[in-house]
Design a protein around this nucleic acid. Sequence first.
RNA 1: AGGCGCGUAGCUCAGUUGGUUAGAGCGCUACCUUGACACGGUAGAGGUCAGGAGUUCGAGUCUCCUCGUGCCUACCA
Length: 927
Amino acid sequence: MRDELPKAYDPAAIEEHWAEYWVSESLFHATSLDQSPTQGNFTMLLPPPNVTGRLHMGHMLNQTEMDILARWHRMRGDRTLWVPGTDHAGIATQMMVERQLASERTSRHKLGREAFLERVWKWKEQYGGAILDQMKRLGASVDWSREYFTMDAGLSRAVREAFVRLHEQGLIYRGAYIVNWCPDCQTAISDLEVIHEEQLGKLYTIPYGIVGSNESLLVATTRPETMFGDVAVAVHPIDERYRHLQGASVRVPFINREIPIVADPWVSPEFGTGAVKITPAHDPNDYAVGQRHKLQSINIMDETAHLNDIAGPFAGLDRFEARKRIVAELEDQPGYSVKEHSHAVGKCDRSKTVVEPRLSTQWFIKIQPLAEKAIAAVDQGHIRFTPEQYRKTYDEWMRNIHDWCISRQLWWGHRIPAWHCAACDKVTVARETPEACQHCNSKALSQETDVLDTWFSSGLLPISVFGWPDQTSDLAAFYPTELLVTGFDILFFWVARMIMFGCHFMLDVPMPDGSARTLKDAVPFREVYIHALVRDAERQKMSKTKGNVIDPIEIVKRYGTDAVRFTLATMASPGTDIAFSEARTEGYRAFANKIWNAARFLFMQRERVFAGGGGMMLGSIDLATVDRNEAVLLTHPANPDAPKQANEVDESHLEDRWILSRLYATAATVNSALEAYRFDEAAHAIYQFFWGDLCDWYLELVKLRTETESQQDGRLSFVLFNNIFESSLRMLSPFMPFITEEIWHAFYNGHPPARSIALMPYPVSAQQEVDEGSEAQMAQLQSMIVSIRAARKDAGVPERESVPVLLRTDDASVFQQNLATIQRLARVTTLEVVAQLPDGLAHRATPAFDVAVVYEKPVDTKAERERLSKELAKLHKEKENSDRQLGNESFLAKAPAPVVEGIRRRNAELATLIERTRTALDGLPAA
RNA sequence: AGGCGCGUAGCUCAGUUGGUUAGAGCGCUACCUUGACACGGUAGAGGUCAGGAGUUCGAGUCUCCUCGUGCCUACCA
C-alpha cells in the first residue's frame, strides 16, 4: 500500500513487482473445470518461440496484441486461456550446440548420438527458454501452469501417434526423390525452408562432342560442375536445328561417357542453345525428364557437396571450386562461351548456403488429402482471416502444394518411429519400440536415424497441448481455439500445417456431447489475425547483419513496458508494417506519466476534500464505502451486472453529463475496435479520452469545483471523478497493465475489491448511452474558451491576467449557465453580452458567437489584419464551393437530403462568418 | 514470370459503406516554471491526398493507365 505516489512516473520501479505478482498469484490460470463462462471461451496458443530464441520486436508486437485481447476477454467475463510454450527448433538448436562443441574442439560425431542429445538437453535446461522469462517480464497473461515444450513426453506421444496414423492411412511414404539438400546443415529441408534470391550468375555454353562426328553440340548450363552426372542431352522435339541429331549421342567432356540426345517438349528452344544437359540426380526438372525417358540417375556429390570419384579429375573438389576449374579448362575449346545471366538461386533459410538438389531417400507426407480438407475449412468459412487478403494467399498456396518432406538428417528432434529390419530390409512403423519385424519377425531391428521436421510437431500443437490422442476434458473444453495471432512469415510453415492436421485428426474425435464432429469444429482455430512486420524507424527490415535490430528489452528498460506496448498497439493498423519509432515511445511514456500524475492529483484532492468535514483521512478512506454512502457509485459501465443508479450524476453540471458521455462513447469505440482487431483505433480512443477529455477539461473543472463549491457538492463531483477515473483505469488496463495495476491498488488503499485489476469487469457501453446534447453543449463551451484564449493572445494579454470579454450571440444560455467555467479556464472577469462588438478589439468569430477581449494595449494591427485576411480568403473559397454545389440542379436533385441540408446550413454559416470577419477587418485602425 | 500491398503535413501513420471544413503523434514557432504533470500548459504554422484519365451531382475513397516502392510465390537449364 502506498500513501503517496512519487512525483515522476518510473516504470522500472513498479513493473517488475507486478510481473512477478501475476505469475506467483497464478492469476491467469484456466481449467476446463472453471465455471461455465458467462460470455464464452477465449483460447489462444502462443506461437511457440524457439528455445534458442531471444525476444525481438516481432515477438513483442505479437505478445502485446495477444495480451491486449486476452486481458480484454478475461475482463469481459470470458473463460480465457492463453497457452505458452517453446519449440525445440531442430536445426537451429542443433547448430547452436554444435557451435559450442566446435569451440571445445569436439563434434557431435565424436560424442555420438546419445551423448550429443544429452548435451542438447543440458543446454536447453541451462539456456533454453530465456525468452519465456522475458515474456514474464512483459506481463503476458498466459497460463504458466500449462507451459509446454514440443519434445515433452505428452507432445512426443502425439507426434508418434500422428505419424503412425498417417502411415496406416497411406499418407506417409518413403522413397528416393530429389530434395532440397543443405550441404552445410547436411540434411534435407522442405521447399519452405528454401529462400530464393535473384542473383547475377553466368550461363555457360559448352561443346559436347557428337559421337561419330567431328562436330559438337553446344549445351547451355549454369552449373557445369554437374556434367559428370549427365545422362542425356535434351532438345525440343520440333526444334529444326537438332532434328537430325535425335537418337545420336554425345560425349560428356573430360570423362567421355557417351550419352543419348533425347527429345522432350519441356525444353524451350529459345533459351540458351536449345540443348539442355540432363542431370537427374541434381536437378528436379532433369529428374522428371529422366523419369520420362527411363534414364538412370548418377549422384556425383557427397553430403557436403564435394564431387565424388565419378567426377574423374575433379573428384574431391567442392562444387563451386570444381566449377571454376572446369570452366578454366574449357575456355579454349571452340564453341565455348559465357554470358551473364540473372536467375533465382535457392538458399538454405538457416545457413544461407546454396541448396543442392539431391537425390536421396526421405519420408514424405502425401499432402493432397490433407490440403483438401484445409481448403474446404477456409472456403466454407470455418476459419476467418484478418486481414482478409491472406485468405487468398493461403488458398493459392494450398492449391499448389507439393508433398511435404518431413525427414531431417539431424539428431535433435522427434526420431521417426520406424524400424529397419536387417533380415528382410522392410520397415516397421509403430507407436512403441517393436519387439520384432512385423514382416519377417526378425529381431534385427534398428530405428530410423532421421528425425521429423520441427513443424511436424508444432503443426500438432492445437490438439497435442490439450492431451490428444486422449479425449481429455481440456480437448473438449478448449478445442477449437478461438484465435491465432501470428506473422505472415509462418503462414505456410505453421498456420497451414495446423489447419491440415487439425482438420484431419480431429474429425475422428467426437464432440463433447458424443455427436460426430464436422469440419466446422475440427478446425484448430476459428480466426487468424495476421499482424505486420516490425521494421526499424527507417522502414528497414531488422536483421542482425544490418545491425539495426532493436532489442525490446532495452527499449522497455528505458521507457517501460507499458509505453512500448502502447506504441505497438497504436501503430498496429492492419496491412502496414510498423516502423518502430522511439520518438513515439517517448510520447506514450509521457502519456503514462500523465496518467500517473492525474492519479496523484486525484489522491491529493481526495485528501483535501475528505479531510475537512467528513473527517476521513486519505489513509483510512474505504472508497467502496464512500461510494455507497454517497449513492453515486458508477455502477455502470463499471459493473455491467449492477443497475445504474438514477442519482449518480448531478444533472445540473454540464461537465458531469459530458464526461460520462465521453466515457461511454470511448468504451463503445474501444470494444468495437478490439472486436475488429483495430488495436490502433482502440488505443487512440483511450488516449484521446484520458488526456484530451479527462485531464485537459474535466480535471480542471474538478479543481474549480472542489475549490469553490459547497463541501457537499464538492464531494459529489469528486466522487464522480473518482469513479470515472477508476473506470478509465480498467479501460486502459489491457493496454498498460502495469501502471494501471499500480494505480488501481493505490486507489483502493490496499483494500482492492479483487486481487488484480485484470480480474475486474471491463467497461462496456452502448452507443445510445452517449449524451449527444451534453456533448454538443460542451463543444460550444470549449469553443468559447478556446476562442477567448486565442483572442487574448492576439491582444497580448499576459497569461495570468484576467480580462473582461464581450460576447455577441443569439443564445447565451450555455455560456451564462457555465460562466464560472469560462471565467476560470479562459481567465475572464466579466462576460458581457452585447448587440454589436466594438471595432478594434482582438476578436474571434464562430458560427454561434463572436467574442472580443477588452484590453488596454492596442492589438498588433498588422498581424491581426494578416490573420483576418487569410481567414477571410479561406472562408470565401469555401463559400464559393458550397455556392457552386447549391447552384447545381443535379446535385440538389440527386444528393441525399441530409447532405444538401448540411451544405445549406454551412453556406449560411459561411455568410455570417464572412460578414463578421469583414466587419472586424474593416474595424481595424488604418496602418 | 505470376500474385499481393503501399505512395496523404518535415517524419511515422489514421481516414470503415464515395458526402459538409482531410485527422493524430512526433517535430517546428510563440508565449507560460499556474499547488497533478516541463514526460507539462496555451495558441499556432504546415497538405494541389504520387501523376494522368475516367465513372459520378460529388472522388483521398471506385475503375483504368503511368511512375516510384516493398513483399510473397515460382522446377526454364
